[in-house]
């Protein structure tokens, strides 16, 4: 059910202009020009790369179920669109708190640190010196060791403060209580073993996929909250988790040259890449970088005109927009859509 809600929200945003596969690529976090552009055009940052291991079969099966329930339908084989019932359902449900674009799997590193910290504290409180660490990765182990020593982990103040920080910050999150339970039951400690996904799914009468997604949602919401309103000990665990480097590697190289003042033609020559590739990079930059100088490429009134056209025609199809503003190039329209993704 949870996953189907997720699909409804995604395809609501796609507005009937993408195929069923576009949602799959988005959830897998495919790093192709098309998917990255979709993220910007349809403002789908939240959902990028949420389920990197999802199989296509499973995905299609869920999409099929939406069709079966009358929430969605295929149009001309190419498009997957929500029905009225589907749109109502999507509008009626609570906005999910994902933020895939900025975490990209790093949220699990945050959780691994947390789980080893909690386990260590839980044993240390009971004065049990040694235990089998739940996280086997040596990088995580080293990181946590430093963290604990640095923060004087044996002091009562530390344990009490971190517990209060956890409790306070979780209380404020806009997620279900049952999802917070998932988070705490994936932690383990002295005489308090964690629960497996199977056990949690069974307990909550849910599926593996759904409990794992609900867990992910908590992590994203929590990390967002910790970045907005830092907590002394918890925020340290979130260090380096949010991705600051938002561009693909190649786009970053183009960006560097662009910032040094080279023109698109020069960059294309220097990098020995096709002009259209450099344009793709610019679109990616327009989408990801807040300070992208859109005005260098299009006049302000054209930007407004496109924004207006999108609203009027309720479409982001390039062809439709181009026909309405023939004096703009496809590249310019793409830049506008990317930069103004939030519409």
């Amino acid at each position: 059910m949870y996953f189907q809600h997720l699909l409804l929200q995604i395809f609501h945003k796609f507005g009937g202009e993408r195929s069923v596969s576009a949602g799959f690529h988005l959830l897998k976090g495919k790093r192709s020009g098309q998917t990255i552009q979709d993220v910007g055009n349809f403002n789908l940052h939240a959902f990028f790369g949420l389920t990197p291991k999802l199989s296509k079969e499973k995905y299609l099966d869920q999409a099929e179920q939406l069709v079966g329930k009358g929430y969605a339908t295929y149009k001309d084989e190419q498009f997957f669109i929500l029905t009225n019932a589907g749109r109502e359902k999507a509008n009626g449900s609570k906005m999910m708190q994902f933020n895939g674009w900025y975490y990209r799997g790093n949220e699990h590193i945050f959780f691994k640190r947390l789980s080893l910290v909690i386990q260590s504290l839980s044993y240390s409180v009971q004065e049990v010196k040694s235990f089998a660490p739940i996280q086997k990765n040596e990088d995580i182990q080293l990181w946590v060791k430093h963290y604990l020593v640095k923060n004087n982990y044996k002091s009562n103040a530390f344990i009490q403060t971190i517990r209060d920080e956890i409790s306070d910050s979780l209380k404020g999150l806009p997620v279900e209580e049952s999802s917070l339970n998932l988070l705490l039951y994936r932690l383990t400690g002295f005489n308090t073993p964690g629960w497996t996904w199977e056990q949690l799914a069974r307990e909550q009468e849910s599926t593996l996929l759904d409990v794992q997604l609900a867990f992910l949602e908590v992590l994203h919401a929590w990390l967002d909250a910790l970045y907005k309103g830092p907590k002394y000990y918890l925020s340290q665990l979130a260090e380096g988790i949010r991705i600051e480097q938002l561009l693909t590697e190649s786009a970053q190289k183009t960006a560097n040259l662009f910032h040094q003042g080279y023109t698109l033609e020069q960059i294309s020559a220097i990098r020995r890449l096709k002009g259209s590739t450099i344009e793709d990079h610019l679109v990616e930059m327009a989408m990801s970088l807040q300070e992208f100088p859109l005005e260098q490429f299009v006049a302000q009134q054209d930007v407004e005109a496109i924004v207006y056209a999108v609203q009027q025609m309720n479409s982001k199809k390039l062809k439709v927009l181009r026909d309405s503003m023939p004096e703009l190039s496809y590249f310019q329209i793409r830049l506008i859509l990317a930069a103004k993704g939030v519409m």
Binding site: I118, L121, S122, V125, N156, I159, Q160, I162, R163, I166, S167, L170, E177, L180, N181, L183, L184, Y185, L187, G189, F190, T192, Q199, E203
Partner: peptide, 19 residues
């Protein structure tokens, strides 16, 4: 049976009890 699941808050204070 394993069914009973104390809320997340209770579990937190089991993991990190007051001392």
């Amino acid at each position: 049976t394993l069914g009973y699941m104390p809320s997340w808050g209770e579990r937190l204070s089991v993991l990190l009890p007051n001392i």
